[in-house]
Design a protein around this nucleic acid. Structure first.
Lengths: 253, 253
DNA sequence: TAGGCGCATTGACCCGGATCAAGGACGCGG
DNA sequence: CCGCGTCCTTGATCCGGGTCAATGCGCCTA
């Protein structure tokens, strides 16, 4: 019933790429033209130093559902997302899945480089990354204190985000989870130059459910309810926030 | 019905201190006699370097329920736990509480030193800590690469633990949560020289509930059930594992 | 234009764990 | 020794969200 209301009015959410399949093509130049330049860990380096950085970095693209690496693989690389969206998840032996997070341009994977990856990383949309050999990266970090400091800040952010999510999963209702997730994603998108009204949701409802510790039906029902009471408007591949204060209130704190 | 079965047969769980109230007195010497010496971040430093370390460290004790710092305070110090147990938690505005973790000797607080503490730290048992001025610590870290490396390892561990907990809260049943928590705590205690059979639980059931995203009644019921079916034996301030394989199986993966 | 396929939505019902409500079991102070 | 407070356990009942089962709605291919 909702989709009828919604013409395709997504103003191409500035995610650094398109959300519809098979688009996105950042020219494979060096760091200069990198859309994540201002966001990423790399910003720690002065322009001059970027050469060393670009040298060990290797630009790659992944189509939706392609895997960057798998839980259990040995962790021989770290990544910076330059465009698109990546889901990071763990599987239990019986197939239950928990999505730890959705990564956006500028996000970094490999802050905690153990011997093996503890989770799987998979492209949600077409994805561009900068891939670094783990050893070369570690060696470079050792020589660039700015980079190290930047890594520590990123680690701090990531840990804080993980703790936020622990609170969300441990002590919040379904509606609060959805609202808090949307608010948080909106903030992350906005910081990357997206608008604060339309929130891009290129991932499936199942992905949302597996991130929020709910089922697909519950996610769908909550979103439908928020749409029915005019807090949200469901649009293709996303939602529009109609009543931001109300959504904020539901996300509580 | 269970307590009758349980004489006080706790062989003084080697937590580096006693679990019963009002005991514990590590002499306030330098790092040499520190019970956490081998576990902590400090192990990164050669014996000779410990002087600089001891100089900026400040040994403190806290009685049960005393707070080390509060959510929102400005983060002017980092800590290493030397004895006892600390709970780290966040409060929601309506009073709901989520315990992020229980800290043991050798654990470090302040890997992600933001401007303000994002959570409250409170002594569960009598606690000994080594307190460092945040700035002095950061300055020292800058000069000691070993220390920095050690911090990164600790940050990696902490992030991995947080992700484990996200999976636990997002995708596991009450029984699995309790079992997984007990297995994990047993491992941590064992690594600190405790036995692998008796698991010390100095925290209240409410604490467990607030850590595992459950209610006190559910925690109590699950533990009672495990005791009834001879997987556990409830003892004062802890449990004994009678059927480790079964507990392990419940913790799944 | 029809059929099929993969999501998403919606409804009906069920169940795991929350809530409400008594009791125990200790420990402590008097 | 009693009375009280705190924490834990247990039972009865309720309900939020899970499960099961239809549709619905593009979107793709023929």
């Amino acid at each position: 019933m909702t989709p009828a209301l919604a013409p395709a009015l997504l103003p191409t959410p500035a995610l650094g790429q398109r959300l519809r399949p098979h688009a996105a093509a950042t020219p494979l130049t060096g760091c200069d033209g990198c859309p994540a330049r201002a966001l990423a860990v790399c910003q720690a380096l002065a322009d001059g130093e970027l050469d060393a950085f670009g040298d060990i970095g290797d630009q790659q693209r992944f189509a939706p559902k392609e895997t960057l690496f798998r839980q259990g693989d040995d962790a021989d690389a770290v990544y910076t997302i330059t465009s698109g969206m990546v889901r990071l998840y763990r599987l239990l032996s019986d197939g239950r899945r928990q999505i730890l997070g959705f990564l956006l341009p500028g996000d970094f994977i490999g802050l905690a480089p153990d011997a093996r990856y503890a989770s799987t990383a998979e492209a949600v949309t077409p994805v561009g990354v900068c891939r670094f050999d783990a050893h070369a990266y570690a060696a470079l970090a050792e020589r660039k204190p700015h980079l190290l400091a930047s890594l520590r800040r990123a680690a701090a952010d990531e840990l804080a985000a993980a703790q936020d999510h622990i609170v969300l999963l441990g002590r919040r209702s379904a509606e609060e989870r959805v609202a808090a997730f949307l608010i948080a994603l909106r903030g992350r998108l906005a910081r990357r130059g997206g608008g604060a009204v339309t929130i891009a949701l290129p991932m499936s409802r199942q992905d949302l459910a597996d991130h929020l510790g709910l089922t697909i039906e519950t996610v769908s029902r909550v979103i439908s309810r928020l749409a029915r009471e005019r807090t949200l408007l469901v649009v293709p591949d996303g939602v529009r926030v109609l009543d931001a204060p109300r959504l904020q209130a539901l996300a509580a704190a």
